[in-house]
Design a protein around this nucleic acid. Structure first.
Lengths: 147, 147
DNA sequence: ATGAAAAAGCAACATTGTTGCAAAATATTT
DNA sequence: AAATATTTTGCAACAATGTTGCTTTTTCAT
């Protein structure tokens, strides 16, 4: 498969994803969505600004990420360093409602963040009086590529 | 017990904690440590600035929090809203090394963050190639006081 | 009490995130 | 295909958050 074909395949994948979520197809949305699709790990706002190649206004990036989160295209990953990361949702997420039950992994070496889609979040037994709506698990350690 | 006695008790508790960690006893350290001791939940940087009553420079608050984290007096709690929260460590933490294996709970109603010290983080079975160093669990839902 | 060391405060700056509005691009209708 | 309505973008200005170097003040040990 030629590079040209790869590009056009990605391009139509992006277009479909946007259409499916009733979003108009614009340069910034396509570019940002492509970044996520090309990428194994999660991306922070800053990463996106850098990789988009100074082509888009910061405000646009903020708004685009927010739109994607709202539509259930990407989800946030909590961190302890004040830089929210975003990653693509698997296709079961819908507008206003995320269904991500996988855990996240942050590598101490390469500092990439991965969604481990095959590892589901465990049941947590809470003390009396507490009700769980959502469980987030972030494991920190050394990833596959850095071991 | 009079209010006066309560205050002096808290005061000496704070002093001891600082001494134990070989930190010099200063106004800002005492005040910030007191805030944590008086408080059930976790505090974000912003909370501390507000509650300290505009008495301390922002830089001092940043540096004090960093010092406390380094010494193992407080630990950070990851969030998905770009505002790291801090909470007191139970006494088993030492300089440069935190041993917190409890989970954290964020209330969707009052938005307080609690350390549930009695709920330990579960074992997570990772895919081949990944090594865990630390596991963070944040449960979001409705807390005891808001149910 | 004195001097050395540590911390606080200040100023200046860098980065990150937000809001309102005008211009541009996209989608829709005819 | 062109005109219009709608949505999105970019810009500007601003607010909030975080950082660094340096001077003054406070704390601690002698």
């Amino acid at each position: 498969m030629s590079a040209q074909q790869t590009i056009s395949r990605l391009d139509s994948q992006v277009n479909e994803l946007l259409k499916k979520n009733s979003l108009s197809i614009t340069g910034s949305r396509k570019k940002i969505l492509q970044l996520f699709l090309e990428q194994t790990g999660a991306l922070a706002h800053g990463d996106i600004e850098k990789r988009a190649g100074e082509k888009f206004d910061r405000v646009t990036v903020y708004r685009t990420l927010q739109t994607f989160v709202d539509k259930g295209i990407i989800h946030t990953i909590p961190t302890a360093d004040n830089s929210i990361r975003y990653a693509l949702c698997k296709d079961q997420c819908s507008e206003g409602h995320h269904h991500d039950h996988h855990i996240h992994f942050v590598c101490n070496n390469c500092s990439n963040t991965y969604c481990l889609d095959d590892v589901v979040t465990p049941e947590i037994k809470l003390p009396k009086g507490y009700t769980a709506a959502h469980v987030e698990v972030v494991v920190e350690g050394v990833c596959k590529n850095c071991k």
